[in-house]
């Protein structure tokens, strides 16, 4: 059975419907890419999984349990770690406090996170709002890992970062994948995303329009669904 599976999820912002039936699944140990142009519902899908937007239709099943309608912190406690779009650390806390606040479970510790991201180890006492964009991104990933999630969700984790930093982040994600971490990742840079992903889902206007292996996503399909 899938670790995470969404079936026909429909979500609204007030009166306007954003998701019209999203299907998605992530197996244990798998890296799944969620793709689509701007405004097609990727972030709304993630918000719906976390319960920050309450879906009005469809079902979301995580680790064998229906999670639609639960409170966001309950859903997170069951093992979903979110790296939100735009990094969103706690700016008024230090790096160490940002990490320790989230700590849950025993596998991922401060020591392991700083081993994965040595830059964070050098800046433990610094405020999150004094970090560079890339470092904040590392902190956001580290914070999500500190909750020892069964599923890590990354929303636009490399957006707006320098190429060198992007490589660091992708290298870290590859390490996590090798260690068997299940990951759901949203990203726009296909050349970096596709080699890491095991499976892809493409959204268009709030509906899942493609599901398959990265190599099944031909240049023609890429142009049709993702080209600008």
């Amino acid at each position: 059975m899938s670790l995470l599976s969404l079936k026909g999820v429909e979500s609204f912002y007030g009166a306007s419907q954003a998701l019209f039936g999203v299907d998605l699944s992530v197996e244990d140990g798998e890296v799944v890419a969620l793709m689509g142009r701007n405004g097609m519902g990727k972030t709304t899908t993630i918000s719906s999984i976390l319960g920050m937007v309450k879906p009005r239709g469809g079902s979301i099943n995580f680790a064998g349990k229906e999670i639609v309608g639960q409170q966001p912190h309950r859903i997170a406690q069951q093992g979903i770690g979110l790296v939100p779009e735009g990094r969103r650390c706690f700016p008024n806390l230090t790096v160490e406090e940002n990490l320790l606040v989230a700590a849950r479970g025993s596998d991922w510790t401060l020591a392991r996170v700083t081993e994965l991201f040595p830059r964070l180890g050098e800046r433990l006492g610094q405020y999150a709002n004094t970090l560079s964009g890339g470092e904040q991104q590392m902190l956001a990933i580290g914070r999500a890992l500190m909750t020892n999630p069964r599923l890590l969700i990354l929303d636009e984790a490399t957006e707006g970062l320098a190429p060198v930093i992007r490589q660091d982040i992708w290298a870290a994600l590859r390490k996590l994948k090798a260690a068997g971490q299940s990951i759901l990742v949203v990203d726009k840079t296909l050349s970096e995303l596709l080699p890491v992903a095991d499976r892809c889902f493409v959204l268009e206007k709030g509906v899942t329009v493609f599901e398959g292996k990265p190599d099944a996503l031909t240049a023609e399909l890429q142009d049709r669904y993702l080209g600008v």
């Binding site: 976390l50 912190h73 997170a76 770690g81 979110l82 806390l93 320790l100 606040v101 909750t147």
Partner: peptide
């Protein structure tokens, strides 16, 4: 730390459980 995080942003805090 959690209390100061709650002052800053409650949504982010619930996202870490």
């Amino acid at each position: 730390a959690a209390l100061e995080a709650a002052r800053q942003n409650t949504t982010r805090l619930s996202a870490v459980g």
